[in-house]
């Protein structure tokens, strides 16, 4: 089992390179999920939702690029996927306290989707802010402060998207690809 990972150190003692590696994984993982949602909403004929997820993924990619520029001179450490600290929750997973079948469905309204994305991105912001407050190494703390700024910028852009659509939103679109429940 030579490939098995070693446990990373305490979160508060992360080096700048570890901080960037952890943040990049979190952001890139969320981008991957937005891209997955873009393609599956495309496949299920909700083009507006697909386009939205494409835009959100692009915002995330810009954030990832900005974070990557914070990389210190040293190479980023190789961390096993299961040892990453800040895991991205499923953007469409039901909330812990309010799970119901209606939490996920094909004909999502655009504003509803942006609110879900905002909820998850706020969760990421909270984790990054916590890490910033707990960081003991000054250089790591400085990088985390910049990453928090980038995340806040991403939230601002999502807020702007939400403001743009809520003005036009009336009712959710018809389900153009409903599941055929009866045999």
């Amino acid at each position: 089992m030579s490939h098995m990972p070693t446990q990373p150190g305490a979160p508060s003692a992360m080096t700048p390179a570890e901080v960037v590696a952890q943040a990049l994984e979190l952001i890139q993982d969320s981008v991957s999920r937005y891209e997955q949602l873009q393609s599956c909403f495309n496949a299920h004929n909700n083009e507006a939702a697909a386009e939205l997820f494409g835009r959100i993924a692009a915002i995330g990619l810009a954030t990832a690029a900005a974070v990557a520029r914070l990389q210190p001179a040293e190479a980023l450490p190789r961390i096993a996927p299961w040892d990453f600290l800040w895991r991205c929750p499923d953007v469409l997973a039901p909330r812990l306290d309010q799970s119901s079948p209606e939490d996920c469905h094909h004909p999502f309204a655009i504003a509803e989707l942006i609110r879900l994305a905002l909820q998850r991105e706020h969760c990421a912001l909270t984790r990054l802010q916590d890490a910033h407050q707990q960081a003991h190494i000054a250089a790591s703390r400085a990088i985390l402060a910049r990453i928090v700024e980038q995340q806040q910028q991403q939230l601002t852009e999502l807020d702007a998207l939400l403001a743009a659509v809520t003005a036009n939103e009336a009712t959710p679109p018809d389900d153009l690809d409903p599941p055929n429940r009866p045999e």
């Binding site: 999920r33 997955q36 949602l37 393609s39 599956c40 909403f41 495309n42 496949a43 299920h44 499923d90 469409l92 997973a93 996920c104 469905h105 094909h106 999502f108 599941p179």
Partner: peptide, 13 residues
């Protein structure tokens, strides 16, 4: 090739 699984499908994970 893009998956055609339903939105929220566990198989994405």
């Amino acid at each position: 090739i893009k998956p055609i699984w339903c939105p929220g499908c566990g198989h994405f994970g």
